[in-house]
Nucleic acid binder design. Structure first.
Lengths: 347, 347
DNA sequence: TTGAAAGCGTTACCAC
DNA sequence: GTGGTAACGCTTTCAA
């Protein structure tokens, strides 16, 4: 015996009856078609709306218009707290704000890479378009992209670099290769001869690009530079901290490059633990500077990311695509910039 | 002249025609009412679904069932990157994951406190229930709560402590008063005599509670302790850093308590800048420890927050409320715990 | 086990 | 300026 006080929601029809006009008139008022309604009638209707506390039913509107005024964002990540990542939280904030301004709704869902295809956002049709962040091995990501192509719906994929043959897909990324190069050139200028690259085990295109850019710049520096890589089991501070400490107990490189700021911060702490002077003995850098870089002592040298703006831009591209039926731009790359801190340069 | 390639979406009817069965049979298969459908028929239908790439239309389903299987979360914040806050990002992640497991959708929207009432999530009816995080002056928050009561819809409010008379409203918070007390007792044990509390100008109930708990514990410590407060213009690291530095250039307290970890980290950095030894000369603490506390050197003493679990719990309470028509619990308070770091205790 | 009909709340279209 | 009609895609109900 369950108590169900299903008070029926107020409908447009209720308002129309209460105001003594037709449903269509109410609809015209609600939708802001004010030139269709006499001022006096409009006042009556608005009074009734306020009195009855009427709110238009979005499902009904969506069904009627065949559009939901809603975008979904699906984030593939092994970390359950998927919004914790500063890149992702900024991206989603920017997207959400842009959509809000245009009265669009944002559905947010995180999913582990293995369950990607069965995510509600993909298996049910509830959004007009999608944003996606992928991770995992290249093979898997490729499969996910193919799945997205088959969805037959506008999709923006972040931080991916293989543009599929489908004008439903648009790529949006930051120039991580260039970011890696910036770090590489900066360190080469400091005459680094041995370098440790610290990255998470989980595959992200961004991380791969950063490493490629780094190696490219170092390879063209004119000196022989020895690069080693360690993969940390997760991106959790403690895991990274421990992994770097283990490495440093055996060998002290001239520089440590973290694939993200969290990894850089953990490396910094490992150096502090082992009394390795930064920047005097070893230089340390991060990537994707938002907040973390300034929490640390010394400040972390990092590459600044335009994540928030990328989110807004995604909203813009998607809404334009919905209006015009075509993406104005299929592969946008945002510039990044080097932020030099005391972790690589005595102040 | 706009190109509109509005390829009509595949409907249940299309599938039924293609499979040579009635729409109802397809519906039964889609919804998993397998005992109503012969195995052979079901196979035919599933084949057609896969072949046509059919995805059920959520708006139509919602309209028919008068429920959207969707929850909204509205976050009142002056910071545009509202998901950046580690408490909020964990909370939303936990909520999102719980809802995903039950095939519910989560709509996320940030809004500035002044525009609160006009947020799409509130002014249009698209969700079955809401979660809300409030901020701003007490008067304004009270008005927002009243607005939520009038919505006549299940709502969970986080970090609020005045339970209104409405069984549509449920409060979920962490024990920030106790958290403040824990910090206070810890510092009193260290025989602190002068203390600086650093808080953002923007009003959050959590911050107020933390300060009250802190003052309560210090007031009962048996010693005379002088407490001063500074309000930082924002929660941005640089603003806080500067504000604390200004204060420290005039006076050196025995302890600095940050209202959040970011404020604590900024205070730590200000101490480093002015060569004030931590913890030897001044103790420093934060609040809501997630990641930041361990980035700093020394590690920040902080109060750990169960934000992720609070998000999951909110989902649980809300879905139970939708099923049973009544909140099993109207005011849940989550315990917190003290995490002692090197910023208050020589290791 | 399958099918036909009605209706969820809204809006485009056209008549008044 | 205003209102009637039909339809959006789905599921509950009842009949076959």
């Amino acid at each position: 015996m369950v108590t169900k006080e299903r008070e029926k929601r107020v409908t447009l029809r209720d308002v129309s009856r209460s105001a003594g006009v037709s449903p269509m008139t109410v609809s015209n008022v609600v939708r802001g078609d004010h030139h269709l309604v006499k001022l006096e009638t409009r006042a009556k209707v608005e009074e009734a709306i306020a009195r009855l506390n009427y709110r238009p039913n979005l499902s009904a509107r969506s069904l009627r218009l065949s559009r939901a005024s809603s975008i979904g964002i699906l984030i593939s990540d092994t970390n359950p707290a998927f919004l914790t990542d500063p890149f992702i939280s900024r991206l989603v904030s920017g997207l959400s704000n842009y959509l809000s301004e245009l009265d669009f709704t944002l559905d947010v869902q995180g999913v582990s890479p293995e369950r990607f295809e069965s995510a509600t956002i993909l298996s049910k049709a509830g959004n007009d378009a999608l944003c996606v962040i992928l991770c995992g091995p290249k093979r898997l990501r490729r499969r996910h992209v193919e799945h997205l192509v088959r969805m037959d719906q506008p999709v923006i994929i972040f931080q991916e670099n293989n543009l599929p043959h489908s004008n439903n897909i648009c790529l949006l990324s930051q120039d991580d290769f260039e970011g890696g190069s910036l770090i590489g050139r900066h360190l080469a200028d400091k005459e680094v001869r041995s370098l440790l690259f610290v990255r998470p085990k989980l595959d992200w295109v961004a991380v791969e690009q950063r490493e490629r850019g780094l190696r490219f710049a170092l390879g063209h520096s004119g000196s022989e530079i020895n690069i080693e890589t360690i993969m940390t089991p997760s991106e959790d501070f403690e895991d990274v901290h421990q992994a770097v400490k283990d490495y440093l107990s055996r060998s002290t490189p001239d520089a440590i490059v973290g694939a993200t700021d969290v990894l850089g911060a953990a490396a910094l702490k490992a150096c502090a633990d082992l009394k390795i002077a930064v920047p005097e003995t070893t230089l340390v850098t991060g990537f994707n500077g938002f907040d973390v870089w300034c929490y640390t002592t010394p400040n972390l040298t990092t590459v600044m990311s335009p994540a928030y703006e990328m989110g807004r831009q995604a909203g813009q591209l998607l809404l334009a695509r919905l209006k015009d039926g075509v993406f104005s731009e299929r592969n946008t790359v945002f510039p990044v910039s080097l932020q030099i801190g005391a972790s690589t340069e005595a102040q």
